[in-house]
């Protein structure tokens, strides 16, 4: 950990080697963060790049209070949030169609791999994806989300519910698909 502190200090004074070291340390994890906020890999790569530039430009402001990973991660989330705000300023009124409640057991979910879950999250409509991520992954409440995304608390709540609905459906689809595939190959 002392090592990380030194690297951070070096980065703050503009040492390119230290910056690369820091990047190598955190990029894979942060790419994971960016991926789940993005609709595809390209967008995630973009966020990761912008995020790290910001990290290097502001690293001298890091006060070594609290976790550095948390700090970097917040920057990535903010970059993604910024991109979302820029891209989806005009959102159509969401369709209020409801899926019928699906029978859903968490066992199914537990069997599905992280890669597949990531893909499902990426496939969510942008606003649902954002609300889902902020609520589930960042632990923000609806009030916070509504402020961050400039939507009402009600919208945040309904978006979260819709995101969950869609995800459940897709998980089931995936599960049944996997099962039928398994049957087929058997």
């Amino acid at each position: 950990m002392e090592d990380l502190k030194d690297i951070i200090k070096e980065c703050a004074s503009g040492n390119a080697r230290a910056q690369e070291k820091l990047y190598r340390m955190f990029a894979p994890k942060m790419f994971g963060v960016c991926l789940r906020y993005a609709k595809d890999r390209t967008e995630a790569e973009d966020s990761l790049q912008d995020g790290f530039v910001k990290v290097f430009l502001n690293i001298q402001n890091f006060r070594h209070e609290g976790s550095f990973e948390g700090w970097i991660r917040r920057i990535m989330v903010n970059v993604s949030l910024g991109k979302f705000r820029k891209q989806y300023v005009l959102q159509p009124v969401e369709d209020m169609a409801q899926f019928e409640d699906v029978e859903f057991s968490d066992d199914i979910l537990a069997k599905i791999g992280a890669d597949e879950l990531m893909e499902l999250v990426q496939q969510l409509p942008p606003r649902y994806r954002m609300v889902f991520n902020l609520f589930v992954m960042e632990g923000m409440n609806h009030q916070e989300i509504s402020e961050a995304m400039n939507i009402s608390v009600g919208t945040s709540k309904s978006n979260l519910a819709r995101a969950r609905d869609i995800l459940k459906h897709k998980v089931l689809e995936l599960y049944h698909g996997a099962k039928s595939n398994a049957n087929y190959s058997a």
């Binding site: 390119a16 894979p28 790419f31 994971g32 879950l117």
Partner: peptide, 28 residues
């Protein structure tokens, strides 16, 4: 459900392509 998502996605690690670092360098 949230917890499962959180657990699985939080640990999600993927090596970004090399050109991302190049992009960061050239931007700096």
């Amino acid at each position: 459900m949230d917890k499962i998502f959180r657990d699985k996605l939080d640990g999600f690690v993927e090596e970004p392509p090399a050109y991302v670092w190049d992009g960061i360098q050239s931007q700096m």
